[in-house]
């Protein structure tokens, strides 16, 4: 019997999810014996045209990481959906939008202006901005369109499973691969490779009285390693974030940033964290409440760092 076929693709991403696969280490060699990898731009030399010529549903499983920010991302998402039996949204960007989705706080115009004109080290005297097509002597050159709004994979095509994390931790990746390759399939649409409770369930720190008098940022204080960071005034997204990562960030004395997405059943990770955090502000009137709230310098960046595209509002008003 032929080996199952697998594909890996990166859309609007940083490459970290590819490294997560590499972190499987020697297990990767095991996989390569049991699975035929038919498409993996970062590591192998297959072309888009190779994928286009594959029969429908001939890829058994495709691990798609990265958000959908360009027309190329969208095209490949649709293409791989057509060609794959199982499409897995792999990593925070594919699941919730990830860091790229923070582009939804601004606009395409502002991003292009900043990158191509305004940054101090840019040398662009003619103020040239990228165009989707340009005529040259040899013909017409095209590049993909850059979208104004970043979307998740699930908002673009039908997704079978979601593996959260930025990146998903190696142990979880390994167990997911074993399950899928071994035919041990959970219900469609499930989030896999993660726990069903919030990070607080795994975190070993001592949870105190949660009275927040003042919010401090991680560069302002060196937190103690025993007690919960929230009790020390540092915003830790742990209570509103799905667990399964082993609380590695907390073990390094840094707060959880929310990369595993919302806890099962929660509609909007950012709003829930906002509620949980502010409910415990030590304030009895509007002025005190505002004063403490001012300590949250960037609410969207804090509460929706990895999940803006999947949130209720999805983007800021243009």
């Amino acid at each position: 019997m032929a080996n199952p076929k697998a594909a890996f693709y990166w859309a609007s991403s940083c490459g970290g999810c590819e490294i997560a696969v590499l972190e499987l280490g020697t297990n990767l060699l095991d996989i390569s014996k049991k699975v035929d990898i038919v498409f993996w731009p970062v590591a192998l030399d297959f072309k888009y045209s190779d994928v286009e010529s594959m029969p429908e549903k001939s890829i058994d499983v495709c691990f798609f990481n990265g958000a959908i920010q360009t027309s190329e991302n969208e095209h490949m998402a649709k293409l791989l959906r057509e060609k794959s039996k199982i499409l897995v949204a792999f990593g925070a960007c594919a699941y919730g939008g990830g860091i790229p989705a923070l582009a939804n706080t601004t606009s395409r115009e502002q991003i292009l202006m900043r990158v191509y004109k305004e940054t101090p080290t840019t040398d662009n005297p003619n103020g040239i901005l990228p165009q989707t097509k340009v005529e040259v002597a040899e013909g017409v050159l095209t590049i993909p369109e850059f979208y104004n709004t970043v979307r998740t994979l699930g908002q673009t095509v039908d997704v079978d499973y979601y593996v959260p994390g930025c990146p998903p931790v190696a142990e979880q990746v390994w167990s997911v691969m074993k399950d899928i390759v071994g035919g041990n399939l959970p219900p469609k649409g499930s989030v896999i490779g993660a726990s069903e409770k919030s990070l607080c369930d795994e975190c070993k720190r001592i949870k105190g009285d949660r009275k927040i008098k003042k919010i401090v940022r991680t560069h302002q204080v060196i937190p103690d390693t025993e007690n919960c960071l929230l009790d020390q005034g540092i915003i830790c997204m742990g209570p509103a974030t799905r667990g399964g990562c082993g609380a590695e960030c907390l073990k390094s004395n840094m707060p959880c940033r929310g990369c595993y997405g919302p806890v099962p059943g929660v509609l909007d990770q950012g709003a829930k964290m906002l509620s949980a955090l502010s409910s415990n502000f030590d304030a009895d009137n509007e002025e005190d409440a505002r004063r403490i709230a001012d300590g949250v310098v960037d609410p969207i960046g804090t509460f929706y760092r990895y999940s803006l595209a999947r949130s209720l509002l999805r983007r800021a008003k243009a």
Partner: peptide, 12 residues
Amino acid sequence: ESCSGCKICLGL
């Protein structure tokens, strides 16, 4: 089954 023991609710 869903409670993760975060204790956010206790003082409220």
